[in-house]
Design a protein around this nucleic acid. Structure first.
Lengths: 198, 198
DNA sequence: CTCATTTTTGAACGTTGTTCATTTTTAACT
DNA sequence: AGTTAAAAATGAACAACGTTCAAAAATGAG
């Protein structure tokens, strides 16, 4: 049997992650406060620092959960046998809709920065890999002479391109465009990339 | 003749912008401190708030200067009569090199967020327009049936795509790639976009 | 039940951005 | 030049933040 000590600690950790996720979802990463998290989790302020090194550690776990959500969403949006045009289109639109539906959680994935000198831990970097894999699979069939690594790099490029369009739109930089136009542009870009030959 | 009052105020404003620019360039937006800016500008802490509403106002002016620098760099990178492939390639590579050379100032352009509820002032949003214009000019020749606005939207999409690739790389998300590979990927993407027909 | 150990707590600390009463500077007017 | 009201500069003080830590509460082995 697991001791009451460890049980309570894991419970606190889970409550903190839930509270932090909700607060980021509701108010965005920039308005996140350690005191708000502790209060919503029903814990003392100091408790947060008995589970995580600092706020960044907690945010990393929230982002980890968001990535898992995103992975599920994207996985159910595609069928492995579909043509590359259809797969790119489905992935891009599913990504766009996820970003729109969970704007703050999605933004936190890319807005969050580690403090000076500290880099993102390896276990969290690795969690991004599925995004590349999703694109690399159909792309490999279009790059039969390329190495596995080159396909992965190209997949990363294509993801970053679509991500950039969505990101710059939702950030409200430049003059804003309507969601309908954004969806159209994403559709066009996904088509261009799917049909491309370098 | 202009009064000593106004002269000194403008001088203070200029010194603050220079100091803030240098500090962002050296240490990045995240490590920017109001006290450091005032000290480097040779001013009292409170002086900052007699010229700008808050730190965000000052950062906006720094970003304004960075955009002007970027505009000069990109303008000298292209020739108006060149083919679209060459123009897209030159612009993309010049943009990449600017981002690499002034990484922190360039990052600040996109990392900076206004406080809750406050939106970026119109005069600063308008300063981004040249980026779209640079791409829209050659693109219009490839979209003869499209309206001026549709061309601008597509130009924005293409910029965002290239920007996304550079942005995600320099942020160090996912597994990093070397500058050479990044340059290759940017070259490939610029070619794909230049040759695209939707 | 006892009590040494672990966990939880929230007051306190150092560091932020911002404000404001005070001092200093400016320039219009005798 | 001297006077003085207005403007500007100053830096101590304030509120709010992330983080720490001495003290209190909870735990579980004997």
């Amino acid at each position: 049997m697991v001791g009451k000590r460890q049980t309570k600690k894991e419970d606190l950790k889970a409550r903190l992650i839930v509270a932090c996720t909700e607060l980021i979802r509701e108010q965005g990463l920039k308005n996140l406060r350690a005191r708000d998290i502790a209060e919503r989790a029903g814990a003392a302020l100091g408790g947060l620092y008995t589970v995580f090194d600092d706020l960044d550690g907690l945010i990393l776990h929230v982002n980890s959960g968001t990535l898992k959500q995103l992975e599920n969403t994207l996985n159910t949006a595609i069928s492995p046998s579909a043509a590359i045009e259809e797969t790119f289109l489905s992935l891009s639109l599913a990504y766009l809709r996820f970003a729109l539906a969970e704007r703050n959680l999605w933004s936190a994935l890319f807005e969050h920065r580690m403090p000076e000198g500290v880099s993102v831990p390896e276990w969290h970097l690795a969690e991004h890999a599925f995004l590349i894999g999703l694109i690399a699979a159909p792309l490999a069939r279009h790059m039969p002479d390329a190495s596995r690594q080159d396909v992965a790099i190209r997949a990363r490029t294509f993801f970053a391109a679509v991500h950039g369009v969505i990101s710059l739109s939702l950030e409200g930089r430049f003059v804003g465009i309507t969601p309908e136009v954004l969806e159209r542009e994403i559709t066009v870009l996904a088509g261009i990339l799917a049909r491309s030959r370098s």
